[in-house]
Each structure stands twice: as structure tokens, then as C-alpha cells.
């Protein structure tokens, strides 16, 4: 356990990447939206997505930055994996509560006095406190591990591995779009999404995240420096 704590400490030593940058990214998006909101109209914005995208970026970057370093310093691959997962877990929960708090402030202040809907969005903010945290937390986790698994593929199978992955996903997406189009199933899909709540969607995402987690662990176990 001691080693896992060491990995977490090592990650968080890079305060800039883990603690400051996500909020700088998010706040700059927020400030832009505030400025636009002063024009007077009520605005619903997707600027909140910037912090999730950032999580994907840090998921991609952190493997290359810390894996060779920590393995070189004699860490076990398993401990690296557990420590990294714990780090994103801690960051994810803390960030979700901050986002939730910002959402409440936004509601109370009637959109910061400008009718801006940045943190408190319809659908995503449905449900009770627990459901809202669950949704935010899963978005953070999902995007982090999406980046992480991509980076692990690169580490284990190199550039060619990534080419194959992207070509395969390109084919899968194209074929599914074609099938959905030709069977005219778009309505059914939209209805299905409309029927499930954000919390249910988050739970589904959690399952997908678990798949990323397992895949990345299997790849890291045999990855070399």
C-alpha cells in the first residue's frame, strides 16, 4: 500500500497538470461565456465539456510522462496502475463536488445574474445530489480512462497499434451509421436516450470505463520502458 501512496504523491507532485490546468481550462471557457452572456440573452452552453476533454488529455499524457519514470524508479506495474487509478478517483470526486457547488451557486444567482447556464444544465443536473455527483464523476473517469487506454495501446503496441485502432473504430462507426440510416432507426435511438436518465447513462458509462480499466491494466502489465 505504501508504494501506491508513493505513486499518488508522485502524480500530485505535478500540481500544475492535475490541480491547476483543468480549472484554468474550465474557467477560461466560463469567462468567455460570461462575457458573451453580458449581451443579455439567456445562454445554455456546453463549456463544461472542456474539463472532461482535459481529463482525456491528461489520461493520454500521464502514461508517457510517469510510466517510464516510475518503472525506472522500481515501482511495480500493478502499483503504478492502482496509484494512477486512485489519483484520478480522488481528483474525480473532488472535482465533481466543486462542479456541483458551482452549479448550486449558478442556480441561486440566477445564472451569475446573467442567465448563463454553464454548470447547471438541463438533463445532466437532473436528480438528487448523489445522482448529480455520480454523473459528473463518471464523466471525469470515463474521459480519463479513454485517454489512458489509448496511451496504453501506444505503449504496448506502438504507433502501428494506434493506426489499427483508429482504422478499426473508423470502420465500425461508418458501418453502424450506415446501418442506422438504412434501417431508419435514428428515432428509436433518440427515444431510447430520452427515456434513460443522466444517472442511468452514467452507470452505463461506468461499465464502459471498467472495460477501459481492465484493458489498460492487461496492457501495462507487459509494457516495457
Amino acid at each position: 500500500m505504501n508504494r501506491v501512496a508513493g505513486i499518488i504523491r508522485t502524480h500530485l507532485t505535478d500540481r500544475w497538470s492535475w490541480l491547476f490546468l483543468p480549472w484554468i481550462v474550465l474557467l477560461s471557457s466560463f469567462v468567455c461565456n460570461l462575457i458573451i452572456a453580458t449581451a443579455g440573452d439567456e445562454i445554455y452552453t456546453g463549456g463544461l465539456a472542456s474539463i472532461f476533454i482535459y481529463m482525456m488529455v491528461i489520461g493520454i499524457v500521464s502514461v508517457g510522462q510517469t510510466f517510464p519514470f516510475l518503472i525506472g524508479f522500481g515501482a511495480r506495474r500493478k502499483d503504478y496502475f492502482l496509484g494512477t487509478t486512485a489519483t484520478i478517483g480522488i481528483i474525480g470526486i473532488a472535482s465533481s463536488f466543486i462542479l456541483l457547488l458551482m452549479g448550486y451557486i449558478e442556480t441561486r444567482s440566477e445564472g451569475w445574474g446573467l442567465k448563463l447556464h454553464f454548470f447547471d444544465l438541463p438533463y445532466i443536473s437532473d436528480g438528487n445530489v448523489l445522482a448529480r455527483v455520480w454523473v459528473l464523476f463518471n464523466f471525469m473517469l470515463h474521459f480519463f480512462f479513454l485517454g489512458f487506454v489509448i496511451s496504453c495501446i501506444h505503449r504496448k503496441f506502438g504507433r502501428n497499434g494506434l493506426y489499427i485502432l483508429f482504422i478499426l473504430s473508423g470502420i465500425i462507426i461508418t458501418v453502424s451509421l450506415y446501418l442506422i440510416n438504412s434501417y431508419g432507426s435514428w428515432d428509436a435511438i433518440f427515444d431510447w436516450f430520452a427515456d434513460i436518465s443522466a444517472a442511468q447513462l452514467a452507470s452505463g458509462m461506468f461499465v464502459v470505463t471498467l472495460v477501459y480499466v481492465i484493458l489498460s491494466y492487461l496492457m501495462l502489465r507487459r509494457a516495457t520502458v
Binding site: G6, T10, T13, W16, T66, F69, G72, F73, G74, A75
Partner: peptide, 26 residues
Amino acid sequence: CFIKESQKYPDNFRVADVLDVSRLFF
């Protein structure tokens, strides 16, 4: 402790950070 010529360090790490972290692993 394996010190290699090609040892990589995280981009944002200062010398002091490397020494701090070393304590956790050795």
C-alpha cells in the same frame, strides 16, 4: 536502484521534486 542514461522524468518535475519522490521509492 537502476540509474540509466535514458531515465525519463516528468516534464514538470524540478530537481527538488525528483529528490522528494525518490524518498518514496527507496
